[in-house]
Nucleic acid binder design. Structure first.
Lengths: 192, 192
DNA sequence: ACGACCATGTAACGTGTTACATGATTGA
DNA sequence: TCAATCATGTAACACGTTACATGGTCGT
């Protein structure tokens, strides 16, 4: 049976038959909100899915552009995907370096730790802005409710993740700034 | 230079010299809130860190229990760690199977999709409860503010992640339930 | 001229998971 | 007696990242 990436590819291709390049754009790390992967991984997985008969491909020739290999889901692929969807998802461990770094913040100057967090906020602010634009684009569809609830849900999830991260960063910055004056007031208290 | 896991280990061992087993308990998948890893990975990494002179170990013999190999951070290890902390963290792609599954929810019966989400909520409710208990335990330290801001921050982050996830699940359930009646009211509207 | 985009692939390496392997003690 | 906890390790495999490889078109 396919890997998680394999199912993610099947999902996108079922919605719209498309090429590896198209998939890679939607899964581009730092931009993708359904699944993230590099093109190198995607082309290999497309090959495996085709070999297993879950995808089929048609070569489309173009003038003044390289030929495209357009994939679409076979009946078997569609059935496999439907079976997989209802199975309980694998829990992924979300290891984030920033948490490890923050764990030892007491050991570095306040200026450096604050700057580290501010840099993170800049990156994630931008990503959130991007995602919100896509959400706005989806919401103009008829009657406010988007045609594809799944895509809407994926976007809301991605935005929620970013919002939560940014709010944690803000809280952290406040903590870092508060720390110093407090310590000064209590300087004589021995450290246990 | 060590891997992210290596630095995570150095971080924990610097706070308290301890064994691979102790580290494995704190990093236990689904329970760890700083970094998650299996014991098999940890023992290998401990070996590498020792070989590079970032950790040193002392064997402690016990009665009626296997001997413990207690690791502590060397001066070199401490310096390496301090250097690493201020470097910008690697952005990790957070691929979550559940988002892929939700993307195709329109293709399965409402009952099944709702149950899938409810199962997820049970799992994450429990994890959040666990984390909140640990937070409460930390907060009893002198003056409400915990001795180790880093640990406190890591916990708050983990709890925030769970809270956000659960809130998304609740929203999703509401959407799934609302979908059917709405469609009935507008049944004659053609799908674009 | 130069960078970005279209378009597809392979190879080497590094990280993470699962399973194998062992064995005593403690509590239900 | 049975499961859990203490305690450490190895081996095979699966997954993901980085780099290598190629080459035309379009806009500035």
């Amino acid at each position: 049976m396919p890997t998680s990436l394999g199912y993610a590819i099947l999902t996108l291709v079922e919605t719209t038959p498309q090429t590896g390049y198209d998939i890679a754009r939607q899964m581009k790390p730092s931009a993708g909100y359904v699944w993230q992967a590099q093109h190198s991984q995607i082309y290999l997985e497309l090959g495996r899915l085709k070999k297993r008969g879950l995808l089929e491909s048609k070569r489309v020739h173009q003038t003044s552009r390289p030929a495209r290999t357009v994939y679409s889901v076979t009946k078997r692929g569609s059935v496999e995907l439907a079976k997989w969807i209802t199975e309980p998802p694998q829990e992924r461990s979300v290891n984030d370096e920033i948490v490890v770094k923050v764990f030892s913040f007491a050991r570095i100057p306040e200026k450096e730790s604050a700057e580290l967090i501010r840099a993170q906020m800049r990156i994630h602010d931008e990503r959130m802005g991007n995602l919100e634009q896509r959400l706005a684009a989806l919401e103009v569809s008829p009657r406010g409710r988007p045609a594809n609830l799944g895509e809407y849900a994926a976007l809301r999830r991605a935005i929620g993740v970013e919002r939560e991260y940014l709010s944690w960063c803000r809280w952290l910055l406040a903590q870092i700034k508060v720390k110093e004056p407090r310590q000064r007031l209590r300087r004589r208290t021995p450290q246990t």
